[in-house]
Design a protein around this nucleic acid. Structure first.
Lengths: 155, 155
DNA sequence: TTGATTCCCACGAATTCCCATGCTATACCA
DNA sequence: TGGTATAGCATGGGAATTCGTGGGAATCAA
């Protein structure tokens, strides 16, 4: 059994006429092994769909009830929006999920979609939009590179 | 379980027509003993592939998750860039990983590749490019740090 | 009934698995 | 000390499996 669960990589899949998309097999493996479910919602900051394991939202909920000022009022509002929007997306025997009209519209996705890993979360983008977004991020990060810290403590 | 591990040495291996390369056996031993997985991504600063243990990225993901900047734009960008590019590269029963087209192209690798240890991380280079890079680094180090004591314990 | 969702089967391409071979380094023996 | 046996490793190629995808049938809701 694996001990770490990370959504990674960038994967382009087709969206068929019924609105079905294959969830990348790596992602499916994570869902199975954690015995959890995929939850998706409209990203608050970008024209894309965001997804994660239900476990993560559960953790977020716990954090909120355990420390009142852990999040600012603003962040508190944001989490409310997320919970109001989120929904489970189970995949069928061939590994596909069916995205809702609302999500597809928010991300402007029609015939194909890009899954972008974010560690504990992932995003689903319209391919063209992701291309632009990636270029923007690369330029941004290269500009202020010192903020990139990967802590190299093995143990 | 070993307490410490280091990716070391410089090892030249062939890349076959399917894109497969043998992961140096020392590296494999580390993966097995840490019960982790190899993760590779395009280096942000050089034309080479960079690799590390999944544990390292997992720690990064946890740090970000627990950070007060849970919703910050910068964190968001970074996770997209790092995890969107990274991918697990498990090795088969004969010890080989299969590098993606994207990685090979970024590092300009075709028929052979050099694994260069970097401690907690390692890099994979086109042999010719690594030769130049190594020369450059040596020159740089000698120029800037004349007092550097390199202990010659080859073994 | 109509429209939508879920389930199931099918196919091609890509990936992974597995076996075989040759090489190298280490151990072993004379 | 030198030469041989042995084990581990890198590599090649073919077979088997998985994956993404299309389409049809069955099920469900209104």
């Amino acid at each position: 059994m694996r001990k770490t669960f990370l959504f990674m990589d960038t994967i382009l899949n087709k969206v068929d006429t019924k609105g079905r998309v294959s969830l990348p097999s790596d992602y499916r493996a994570i869902v199975k092994e954690t015995n959890s479910e995929i939850v998706c919602y409209r990203s608050l900051s970008a024209p894309c769909i965001e997804g994660c394991l239900e476990d993560l939202l559960d953790k977020l909920a716990s954090d909120m009830e355990n420390s009142l000022d852990f999040f600012s009022q603003e962040q508190d509002d944001l989490t409310n929006l997320i919970f109001g929007d989120a929904k489970r997306y189970p995949f069928d025997s061939t590994g596909r999920i069916m995205l809702s009209e609302k999500l597809l519209k928010h991300a402007d996705i029609t015939t194909s979609a890009v899954f972008v890993g974010k560690g504990r979360k992932f995003q689903i983008w319209n391919p063209q939009n992701w291309e632009k977004e990636e270029a923007r991020i690369r330029a941004e990060v290269l500009k202020n590179r010192p903020s990139l810290k990967i802590k190299p403590e093995g143990n």
